[in-house]
Nucleic acid binder design. Structure first.
Lengths: 112, 112
DNA sequence: TTTCGTTATATTTGTAAATACATAACGATT
DNA sequence: AATCGTTATGTATTTACAAATATAACGAAA
């Protein structure tokens, strides 16, 4: 059995976290469902947790990442901004490249 | 103000963690002090926490990472095995290269 | 055989984080 | 103005984790 290497990356603005894997997952779910409550349900987390996460994302971001509306047809909803979409694409790419690098490097340790 | 990117890497054997940044820090302190209790003190963690960490390291490692002795002159002590020394060197190198890569990549996000 | 500083381990206590629950506010549609 | 599915927020409870405390075991050396 060989060792495996794992990693987590995240982006900070000052002392606050902007993005991590969980937040990216949530943003993708919002993009797919058009709603924060549906996104939360699909990820099996509470609405409150999802809301707190998105609130933190928007507070630490330079530009809005989501736009929400309350009331009206369907009760409201949430969508990603263009900036938000670009963010998750860039994050995923960096993360994937990081994994690829690490997966190659673990051989150094398996061969010790 | 620009965003910063951070990361954590760790090595797993099956479901158990072998090495992470904290464990590597502890192993280095053991190497420097020759004792688990002194290493714990130098890192401002409890002896118990240090012992639990080292126990987990040795249980998930293919080969012993530390060798401890109880009683006798000086009460006993702990030293790293050659395998343990090689492990922390390899871990540090991989980790450092990972940081360098990420630091270059964060520009993609700062330029969005 | 007593001392000493260490390793080894169990048990309790305290604290922070996650979770659950509850409710207000909103606004287009009917 | 009543309804509906959302967003938005406060509060309480539970859980998980960290920290503190206590104590046994060890063996060389004096």
């Amino acid at each position: 059995m060989n060792y495996k290497i794992k990693s987590r990356i995240w982006i900070e603005e000052g002392d606050n976290v902007l993005l991590g894997e969980g937040r990216v997952r949530l943003l993708k779910a919002i993009d797919k469902t058009g709603s924060l409550s549906k996104a939360a349900k699909s990820l099996q987390i509470s609405y409150k947790k999802a809301w707190t996460l998105i609130d933190a994302v928007n507070k630490s971001s330079r530009q809005p990442v989501t736009v929400t509306s309350i009331g009206g047809k369907g009760g409201g909803g949430a969508v990603l901004t263009e900036y938000g979409k670009k963010l998750i694409i860039a994050f995923d790419e960096i993360n994937k490249n990081c994994w690829n690098y690490l997966e190659a490097q673990i051989e150094k340790i398996n061969n010790l």
